[in-house]
Write a protein that binds this DNA or RNA. Structure first.
Lengths: 355, 355
DNA sequence: CGCGGCCATTAGAACGATCCAAAAGTAGTC
DNA sequence: GACTACTTTTGGATCGTTCTAATGGCCGCG
């Protein structure tokens, strides 16, 4: 007998729907729906009955169905050019944290810095109907193509990089950028205050907008202090440690050699340290340098690296906030937010040796 | 006149549906649907007509609606205990890459190592109806609670850590783990081969399963070589650089002091290097050590760190593959996959000084 | 007793796709 | 021209929810 011995809350059967619950406690589907959404309309007593039934049957809400009917969305797409990079990983964690609190779920997409993959990822994500998109574009990505992939319906928040090409006016795309220029200016001013006069700008590549902005900040500070800039004090490298170490030699080809360098970012600065050590020059004592980003390692290098903290996790939270605000006012004018960076002074940026 | 001057493909109007397309080119909704799915049933000529209309109206597919009707899913949830950690960020990138190729989208969730947040994140994600879940559990997470949150319908792939408690038999949850024990054994054997006899196991905490497994591998190698293990050669720390640097002193409180250490992971090993330097002991020359993980920094530390490469991106791809396989055969027996790790010998693990 | 007002509940049509069974068109055969 | 066989197209029900408008019950009031 007793064929139905198991009435477990987590049965293996098919999915439980509102109809099952309604049937289970003799009310209509609509009432159950009202209970789920905490409507004040439903009677205290029936509410209790329904809630009991929900629990008993192990009901799980089908948000996709609800979204379809309500023509809303409860997801946000996050498309990053390089998820493996700790900077973006932290950023993603910040985004997810804030979106989660707001009841949204994060759809992830990683483009590996390829414009083609970016297109593919965007068109795939858009089919899931996200309420908005947070995009850190791949290098060389153009506004027109992104717009074609996502359509004009879905708000986009651009992070970290500008898009090439230009955007029709009707697309209100907000932007969140880092204050690269001011950051590099702060670093340069700091080195100048330490007494340095011959300061190089080391690493990075002129193609990248962030590198150009940082270089501009350096130039600005040097000019403001009335210090000359020798052309050979601009050394371009890949944004990697290896290439920076290699390019160290170029820095000392110039005579008179610089006594300090503002580096494009931390990776480059750490590479330069490597190169300096190989030449018997002790970074921080014989030569001062600064980075940009404040990666975890910066605090632990030898010597610890003076750098600009960008707080990527906070930037992620901020990006999410900005997009949520846009969802509230779809027709508001597009905004541009420039996040401040803060100078973290450590031991790599000492005063010049007074030999 | 000319009120309708713009017939742009990206109009600002409401969403385009199958009905719009059908009306637009005088066929039925069903036919358009067949075209979309590339059915061979539809006539070449009408197909062309429909495709033209799709393009012209800028149609975007509503996958949520399709999934509702078909009772399928096109998303996978990825829940990580610590997204900010580069190891998991790389893992996530690998997962997303493979899922994307298979036509799935990644729903992201980050738990910040909190069991409560893990519960919240899981119940939120499950409402979006993912086809499966890849979970790297928070420390202390228990099988029963996870099962309660996700239900028995949705396949789960456990990565990197075991769950506490136990799982009912009907839940076929696969597991992908790292071969922690073998890795630590390889590192220990390598140090032994270099001539070391007094080898410590440094860092990490006994609560964590990965730490216990690595310690077991170390013990195994020492026993196999007939080498003694002094109790004071087991130093516990937080898995952070800072705490490892602090704990360096403990290592040399033991007499006779060890000449080498197998470290719990790279962070701890790099911290130990810091501590050694502070005591005037040169790592790699005066004292040998190994890490675990092969973080980017390991290759660039001074000296470069001998460690175990886990290739987190490949693990991500592998995890995705395993879950996709499970989706194909929901009733197959649960599998456990142990991913191999490879020893990368660098300069931190030199022979003992023959003073 | 009839009426308006309030509360709690509900039937039934959406949302945008897919599935099914059946219909319409086309052709060939007797 | 009626039959079968095949290709192509289609109406309508359906997935699990929400929304709208309407229902029925109950109360008090004139």
């Amino acid at each position: 007998m007793a064929a139905r011995t198991m009435e477990s809350s987590t049965s293996i059967r098919r999915k439980i729907t509102l109809n099952d619950i309604a049937a289970g406690c003799g009310v209509s589907r609509a009432t159950v729906s009202l209970v789920l959404r905490g409507s004040p309309l439903v009677n205290k007593h029936t509410r209790a009955r329904v809630e009991e039934e929900l629990r008993k049957q192990g009901y799980v809400y089908n948000r996709a169905a609800a979204n379809l009917r309500r023509r809303t969305s409860s997801s946000i797409a996050l498309v990053l050019n390089e998820l493996g990079n700790p900077f973006f990983a932290e950023f993603a964690a910040g985004v997810d944290e804030t979106l989660g609190q707001a009841g949204f779920v994060t759809l992830l997409g990683s483009t590996g810095e390829s414009v083609e993959r970016e297109q593919a990822v965007l068109s795939s994500l858009i089919e899931h109907g996200p309420g908005g998109i947070i995009l850190s574009p791949a290098e060389g990505s153009a506004a027109e193509r992104v717009l074609a992939a996502v359509g004009a319906q879905t708000p986009v928040l651009l992070f970290n990089r500008e898009l090439g090409g230009n955007l029709p006016e009707y697309a209100h795309w907000d932007r969140l950028m880092l204050d690269n220029q001011r950051g590099a200016r702060l670093a340069t001013e700091h080195l100048i205050a330490q007494g340095h006069k011959r300061i190089a700008f080391f690493g990075g590549h002129g193609d990248s907008s962030s590198c150009r902005q940082r270089h501009a900040g350096y130039v600005e500070a040097m000019n403001a202090a009335g210090l000359p800039i020798a052309p050979r004090w601009r050394v371009e490298t890949l944004p990697t440690r290896m290439d920076a170490a290699r390019a160290c030699a170029d820095l000392f080809a110039a005579k008179p050699a610089p006594t300090a360098a503002v580096c494009y970012n931390d990776a480059v600065a750490l590479g330069l340290m490597l190169g300096l050590n190989q030449r018997g020059i002790q970074p921080g004592r014989d030569f001062a340098l600064t980075g940009f980003d404040d990666v975890a390692e910066a605090a632990f290098s030898m010597p610890p690296l003076t750098t600009l903290a960008t707080d990527p996790r906070a930037r992620g939270r901020q990006a999410a906030q900005l997009l949520l605000a846009r969802l509230r006012k779809p027709q508001a004018d597009a905004t541009t937010t420039v996040a401040q960076v803060t100078l973290v002074v450590r031991e790599s940026s000492g005063a010049p040796r007074t030999t």
